[in-house]
């Protein structure tokens, strides 16, 4: 019996309002449970658009997307509760009036639901994820006072605390130093295995592709040009193109 598909995209196109050329064109993709897939490609290839189309934040204009067997257009709110999403280059105003602990807990609000108090267990999850990222000392700090790297760690902790079924990370290492990056890669791989997540990672630096990655999608001009195991995708020619 074939494995159930966690993500299915059938002939999906996404066009930004006012644009004529689709940012994503005729994408067909299916992912099984437990896959760790990296998305690579040059700037403007459609990597971020693919993630945002998949979680329904950006409505697709053609085709069908099914996440966990359900249509993202019809069940977007429900499905986004199962997706841990880290956007690219998330920034906050220095005067932003929220504490780190609030930001982490907010990631769980969708799952908690309307008119319900925050359960005690959510506070435990918040603390655990802060410890996992090594930033428990930042718990009561204002989010606007953090450095870019600290903010990135907080946003990663928020995603981990959500305990999602799917993980969509858009360039999660962009603000992290060398040592932290390697620690975070390890943590993502470990958490991915322990929680049986299906993970999609948008990567810019090909040297940082986790060993655990079992598949790479290479995007160019809004199309999936290659979709295979890392050894077959990361050819010398491709590496040359992507560093250009």
């Amino acid at each position: 019996m074939s494995q159930p598909k966690i993500i299915e995209m059938n002939k999906v196109s996404t066009i930004y309002e006012g644009e004529k050329t689709p940012a994503l064109f005729d994408i067909n993709l299916s992912l099984n449970e437990g896959e760790l897939v990296c998305i690579i490609g040059p700037n403007g290839a459609g990597k971020t658009t693919l993630l945002e189309t998949l979680n329904g934040l950006l409505p697709h204009t053609k085709g069908e997307i099914r996440i966990l067997g359900q249509d993202i257009k019809k069940k977007g709110i429900y499905l986004r509760k199962q997706i841990g999403y880290l956007p690219q280059e998330f920034t906050v105003d220095p005067l932003t009036p929220f504490l780190v602990k609030d930001i982490i807990l907010m990631g769980r609000y969708g799952q908690i639901g309307l008119l319900k108090k925050i359960p005690k267990n959510d506070y435990i999850l918040m603390e655990e994820s802060l410890k996992l990222m090594g930033i428990i000392d930042l718990k009561d700090r204002p989010i606007g006072k953090l450095s870019g790297g600290q903010l990135q760690k907080v946003m990663l902790a928020r995603v981990f605390a959500k305990k999602p079924a799917l993980l969509f990370l858009d360039e999660p290492f962009s603000n992290l130093d060398y040592h932290t990056t390697h620690r975070v890669i390890l943590q993502i791989s470990r958490a991915h295995d322990q929680n049986h997540w299906t993970t999609l990672l948008v990567m810019h630096d090909l040297n940082l592709i986790p060993e655990r990655c079992n598949r790479i999608l290479y995007l160019e001009d809004g199309r999936i040009v290659k979709d295979d195991i890392p050894e077959k995708v990361l050819t010398e020619k491709l590496l040359e193109i992507s560093v250009r």
Partner: peptide, 8 residues
């Protein structure tokens, strides 16, 4: 956007 992404 982050609120929407968390399922609100």
């Amino acid at each position: 956007k982050m609120a929407e992404a968390s399922g609100i």
